[in-house]
Amino acid sequence: MSKLICKKCILDSDIPGITINEESGLCQFCESYTPLSSEEKKKYLGIIEDLFTEHSGKGEYDAIFALSGGKDSSYALYKLKKEYPFLNILAVQFDNAFISDTAIANAKKMCEIVGCDYFKLTMEEKRLCDTFRKAAESTNAYSKFARYRASDICNTCISIIKQKLIEQAIIHKTPFIIFAFTSGQAPNPIIDLQVNFIKWSRNIFEKQLQNFGVEDKDEIFLIKNEIIKSIDKNTTPIMLHPLCLWDYNEDDILKTLADLGWISPKISDSNSTNCLLNSFACHNHIKKYQIHPYAFDIAGLVRSGDMTQEEGLEKLHKELSKPLMEVAAKKLNMELE
């Protein structure tokens, strides 16, 4: 049977696990999709504002912000401080050993512009490379659902970031952790991180690392158990994804950032403006599972009306950068097949 493309998003019947209803012409996700209405978005933003008012100004920082230096997080930091100038933010940039120099410069510049502290979270390069290589070589590390959300390498990287930011928030009693996930990446704008969930998600990630042969005995990647034991149940952090509530238009975001002095990176990766590993991670994932790790994310943006179907399909089918893949493969000590 010839390939069917969902009428509403960009998912198609050649992607394993995607079914297109021949009658409606929609994939199973678009069939059951209920978008957040503008009233619901307003309601969530109202809740976030109330939370900020209630919890800010009590500790060293009000929020820890995950800043990659890429376009989405740079814009979200700018918009966040514009909307809520009273927030005292610590922006944390994770140096995953593949972050571009431009991304580091952009992150520092954005922090200067908005007036917040910057911290670069670093880890031993060899250990990171070994871990990413093992993730790339694995085929059973993450759940099936996770394969649609991101590549095995990206899932590993983002899990490390989440674990360590939650850890920092607990240590410093920071009430909020903020990520710049789009509506395609994070359907839940507010996640109250309760103690049992923190413990459980830590154990799930520990098991995922073990699935591909990484024993994180000294808890470099995982939230330290000692820290979890010290959690005060009344001050667990709340994770926020405000970008999925704001209007999202890639061209407008890039224009706003360019006006601020954010430098467009010279890396030719249509899906990342900060990470030099991303093209390799996508290539590796497509080869293993025949699933483009950005398909679901882009489909979410198209489904919610933040991107046209044409733009989404163009982004999805843009060729991955061979020079970037070659550099990353060499650093990971892997063959580029």
Partner: peptide, 12 residues
């Protein structure tokens, strides 16, 4: 979770 059907995001 152990059977790889859901993970922490799937759980939410």
């Amino acid at each position: 979770t152990m059977k790889g059907i859901i993970d922490s995001i799937g759980l939410i």
